[in-house]
Design a protein around this nucleic acid. Sequence first.
DNA 1: GGGCATGCTGTGAGCACGCTGAGCCGGGAG
DNA 2: CTCCCGGCTCAGCGTGCTCACAGCATGCCC
Lengths: 225, 225
Amino acid sequence: MRLLVVDDEVRLARALAEGLQADGFAVDLAHTGPDGLELARVGEYDAVVLDVLLPGLSGYRVVSALRAERNWVPVLMLSAKDGEYDQADGLDLGADDYLTKPFSYVVLVARLRALLRRGVRERPVVLAAGDLRLDPASRRVRRGDADVALTTREFALLEYLLRHAGRVVSKTELLDHVWDAAEDTDPNAVEVYVSYLRRKLDAPFGRHALETVRGAGYRLAPDGG
Amino acid sequence: MRLLVVDDEVRLARALAEGLQADGFAVDLAHTGPDGLELARVGEYDAVVLDVLLPGLSGYRVVSALRAERNWVPVLMLSAKDGEYDQADGLDLGADDYLTKPFSYVVLVARLRALLRRGVRERPVVLAAGDLRLDPASRRVRRGDADVALTTREFALLEYLLRHAGRVVSKTELLDHVWDAAEDTDPNAVEVYVSYLRRKLDAPFGRHALETVRGAGYRLAPDGG
DNA sequence: GGGCATGCTGTGAGCACGCTGAGCCGGGAG
DNA sequence: CTCCCGGCTCAGCGTGCTCACAGCATGCCC
C-alpha cells in the first residue's frame, strides 16, 4: 500500500512516515502544497494524508485540484483547527476523512485502514461540461438546475461526447461506439440524434454546446457552450 | 532505463546524474544544445531531461529538431522561467512535460517515472509556428489568442504546411497531399486557398507567415511570420 | 521599358453536407 | 389487438464550401 504524506512540519512528517513504514506501508513525503499536489498527480497512491496548513497551496486547494482532475484517491485531512466549520469544509471539498491535531497515531492508522478497506472511493462519476451534467449511475442529465429527460440513444450519444469533450468526434466514430456493431447504420442517424440533443439541451437554454465541424464531425464545448 | 540529461550548469547536472544513478537509471550527460541533440539522435534513450537555456542551441530548438525528425523520445523540459507563456511554448514545441527551476528532486523523479510509464509518446497534439497554433484533435486554429475559423480544405492545407514549416512546398506536392487523388485539379486552386489562408491568418494580424517562392511553391515561416 | 510568365483574387455555378419534418417499423404495455 | 414510444430511414431544403474562370497585378528577362 503506497501512501503519500504531505505536511510541512518536517519532524512530524518524518515520525509519521517511520511509523507507517514499520506498519508495512510504502510512504512518500512532501512538505509543500505544490509538491504534494504534483506527487499525488503522478504517483499512484492508495491514499493521501494531507495537512490543511501548507506553504504554497493549502490542503483544501490540493484536494479540490485533485478532484477537479477526476483523481479520486482517498484523502485523509489533518488540521490544527477543530472548528466544526473547518471540518465540514474539508469534507465538502472532497476529502474522505478528517482528523484534528493533535491526534493519536493509533487512531490515524485505524482511520487510514478504514479508508483503504472502503476501497475505491465511491467516486462521483458525474460527467460534466460547464453546467451540463450527466450521471451514468442514475442515468440522469441536468442542464444547470433543470432535469432533462433523454432516451437511451440520446443518453449514450451525450455520454460519449462528454467523455471526449473538446475533441472533434467523427460520425463514424460515433457510429462505432454509440451504435455498436451494425456498421450499416446511416450516418444521418447521428445527425438526427445530435439534432434531438440540441433541441433538448441547447435550444431551451439559449446555449450552444454541440458544435458542428463541417466535414469532420461534432465537438462538445468543454465549458458546456 | 537510459536517460540523457542536458544542462549547462555542470554541478547541477552532475548532482542530478548521481541521484538518478542511485535510483537505478543509466545516465548520460551533455552540457550544450548541439551535444545534447547529437546524443539524443544516436543514443536510444528512454527519456531526455532538457534544460531550456543552453549554449549553442536552446532546449526549445533541440526538442523541435528531434520532433521534426520524427523522434518521439519523451522529453522533460527544465526552465528557470516560470511564465505560463513559456510553458505553453515548450509543450507546443513537443516537450512531454515541464518543470520550472528550482524544482524538487522527488518531483522530478516522479514526473520522469510518469513519463516512462506513459510509454511511447503519443504524437504531438499541437502543431505550431510562432504564435500560430493548430490542434488536430479539437480542429482549432489560433493566431495568438484569437480563434480562427477555417474550412476543411483550408485546415488541411494549413496542417500540411505546418508539418513542413520552413521548407518550400510545391503546388503539385500540395495537390497530391491535400487534394488527395483527383489529379485533374487546377493548380490555381492552391493559389486560391493560400490566398484564403493569408486573408484569415496573416492580413488581420499584420503578419506574413505564408511566403510565395516564385516558380517553386510556398513556404510557411517556422516562426509564424 | 516591352513582353511574357507567374501568381493573385473577385465572381458565380454547382453541389456536397448537414438539418429537420414526416413517416415506417418493431416492441412493450394496456 | 391497439396504442404509444423510441429508433431509424427517407427526402427535401438551405447553407456555405469548393473550384473554374477570367481579368488584373507583379515579377522577371531581354
